[in-house]
Design a protein around this nucleic acid. Structure first.
Lengths: 191, 191
DNA sequence: CACTATACATACGCTGTGTATGTCAGGAGG
DNA sequence: CCTCCTGACATACACAGCGTATGTATAGTG
């Protein structure tokens, strides 16, 4: 049944991203065939190629979608805090909690750099999450010539912390330990 | 010419790893066909499958090989320093320099987690490099309940620092900035 | 000096991506 | 109300690349 209405088409595109996110998270990028996504979405691969151009294109859309969700949570938490020091902490801890779902972590932190390339991945991350970290660090008094380097390294620390937590899921206290360790690093930076 | 001597066979296996490391680093795992590796090594894909079983198996061998090299550099540098505080710093900075080659960084930090899986990747890293970081942190007086979490986060920070440096290759001062930022984090940990 | 296991080469099937082409309906213009 | 065009898919096909099964010749072994 070709040519649905414009809203139906948008809904199809949205649904495909959602389904793809689930499958990519469960099996990893390489093990997911586009036919799996299409079939689960009630369409054929033709529809996927129509909307996203390629398998990588679909994955890019999934990545952007998830990053946007994480960034929204982060921004909300940081906005609720006041004072530069507290905003940094609130935002960082919120990021860690937001990104710590098995679904998100596998796609955003494991597959994305390899699939879309590290440079593009970092650019996307910089636009959605890392900007806020950078800004918070600047406000907290980090020396300008160390700002970029520290943003990158703290970002890496938090990403690894997220993977570490997910890997220990079920182990009680793991999440708290990660948050406390993160506080050690953050306090170091803000002096 | 089938069946060379045992040393010749070992040499073939060694050569294939070397060639594969170059190709994987240049194009990334997915874009490298086993036939490229085999042809460059003067054999056919049959030889590759004989020695390494699968494409993933070959990649695993490449990963282990590179990690071993990095770890050797790290251990040497740490051994030359004395005092727990200094060993931590020396080892960390040596790690950053050792891992900061475009070849190493792409394979070990971008593709490896996605290809062989994050858990296996972390296990390999834990055995080669992270053990030493963990040990140094323990000696430097890090609280036992934060030891694993901090090891992971600092490891993530250093890995991201390496990618950050390689991404800015040519930009003078980038490497120094990364090292100074790393010092900020390390000093925080050791109090 | 057979004989076996090793170190490959050759041949083939199969999965999955991408692309080219077809098809049918919604909506804008007359 | 009819037409035409374009968007939203479906269908069909070519091709690359992985894995596996099978063949083959030699280096070691008894």
């Amino acid at each position: 049944m070709p040519r649905a209405t414009a809203e139906a088409a948008a809904e199809t595109a949205r649904r495909l991203v959602e389904i793809a996110a689930d499958l990519f998270a469960e099996r990893g990028y390489a093990a997911v065939a586009l036919d799996d996504v299409a079939t689960a979405g009630g369409v054929t691969r033709g529809a996927v190629y129509h909307h996203y151009g390629s398998k990588k294109g679909l994955f890019r859309a999934v990545t952007a979608h998830l990053q946007q969700q994480v960034a929204a949570t982060l921004v909300a938490a940081a906005g609720a805090a006041d004072g530069p020091h507290d905003r940094l902490r609130a935002g960082s801890h919120a990021f860690l909690d937001a990104v710590t779902s098995p679904r998100t972590v596998r796609i955003l932190l494991v597959d994305a750099p390899a699939v879309i390339g590290w440079q593009e991945w970092r650019a996307l991350d910089a636009d959605s999450s890392a900007v806020h970290l950078r800004e918070a660090l600047a406000e907290a008094g980090v020396a300008p010539e160390l700002l970029d380097a520290l943003t990158a390294q703290l970002s890496g620390a938090m990403n690894e912390a997220a993977l570490w937590i997910v890997d220990r899921d079920g182990e009680p206290g793991a999440r708290e330990a990660a948050h406390r360790a993160l506080d050690v690093l953050l306090e170091a930076v803000t002096g």
